[in-house]
Design a protein around this nucleic acid. Sequence first.
RNA 1: GGCGGCGUAGCCAAGUGGCUAAGGCAGUGGUCUGCAAAACCAUUAUUCACCAGUUCGACUCUGGUCGCCGCCUCCA
Length: 461
Amino acid sequence: MSRKKEEFQPLSQDRVTFYACGPTAHEVANLGHCRRFIVADLIHRLLLSKGYNVEFFMNFTDLDDNTISGAEKNGQTLAQFTGHYINKYKEDIQALGVKPASCYPRASEHVEEMVQLAHDLVHKGYAYEKHGSVYFDISKFAKYGKLSRIDLDKIKIGKTVDLDDYEKHSPLDFTLMKRSTLAELKSGIFYKTEFGNMRPGWHIECAAMTLHFLGDTMDIHTSGRDLIFPHHENENAIAESLTGKPLAKFWLHSELLLVDGKKMSHDNKNILNLRDVMDKGYTAREIRLFLLRNHYRKPIDFSYKKLDAARVSLRRLDGFTRKLLCLPPGLPHPQVALHLSEMEGRFHAAMEDDMNISRAMGALFDFIKKVNPIISDSQLDRDQKKYILDSLEKVNDILNLLQLEECPLAPEIDKLIKEREEARKQKDWKRADTVRDELARKGFSVLDTIKGTVWKEDDKK
RNA sequence: GGCGGCGUAGCCAAGUGGCUAAGGCAGUGGUCUGCAAAACCAUUAUUCACCAGUUCGACUCUGGUCGCCGCCUCCA
């Protein structure tokens, strides 16, 4: 709210409440959605790693203009239509390595609370009914605009909306409950209220769900920065006018995902779905790194070139962890503990400073640079190797990018690698290459190092 | 028009009122190597959009200029 970095202090000692605006269930996840999921995930994981008991909610908007018209076009019921896309979202969220939320509430399941909110707002004078719809009267809420810092006297009214569609007292007011259309009445998408048959609007949906699950004020509300106005401003207005308390203590807004310098959006016709990019052969893990490695408050301009750079960075990380895992213990190295504690200190300090992930990753790469020569000399004993791996586990609890599984090598693969080593020793290159090809077919790459062969399982596409 | 944000090497990207301007990618040189791939090492900004001001000193603070992006009340 202050637009400054502030030290995070949760409202309650033992738990942190955290809400992310989820997607509308009428399309599959595009990279813009993915970025929001991943930023929320980073916050989630960072809070968990700090030992907080986190209650994380992300909604699905399954009752709005888009879902209703989508269901109609497809000849499906609303629930069939939205259920399909909610499942797709959940698959994509999982593929991206995002930790599941405590709960994924759906707007359609909380209409009662929304109707109640509208009722309370009207009776307390913050809202009014007109021609079968209920509108919020922003002139009654003095703090309106404090979140988005909008100056109501100077905005261009009607810039993006056709005002003729609405019958509000003031064009600045926003819709809480929308009068049901004839088509909606026919397909049963309406709710009986004291004001007539209607359905909730977008802003009241989020407000009702956060109030219901997280109480009057939550610790952290996160979403994309393009939603600050009007959505979050309105969400807050609904809640704060009733409770007298701000809806959230901290608002974290992630920046946009751009394509060729323009926001990825339907208007710009430049939508890229996660599945489109994966179909081009990029793994979800590569996409995760691409979306994660920039600070959340900086825009990311998408390009395949940058995705390739992320891929190579990931390869460097994988090469390092793989060598480390396969390294036979040797003599202890005197400097290693120092490098490790320096990396930990820098990494965690950077993450706690408004999630400065670039700086945190820098610490990780610096560490790799220092430890690589040590590994080449086999100068790590069993304990040191364990300390490093334990530390990387902690880093990975936040990043979820590293490959740190021990070598659970299938016996047949192990046999092939040994067979190739034997062939190489006997300088039977033809046989060695044949085995290498076979390993490649099974999805394993071998890396020959001075200390012997290190294998690596290729990412599954 | 209002509000908000951004402009750092070929590309991406941290950062600080003075200490070597992190790190990644690409490039270059080298090491290693049966070949290949990978890996490893070294190296890459006298300069931080432009102009002026404050200051002993600014990329970092202030003002202005230019360029780009986002939002402006039911696209999410």
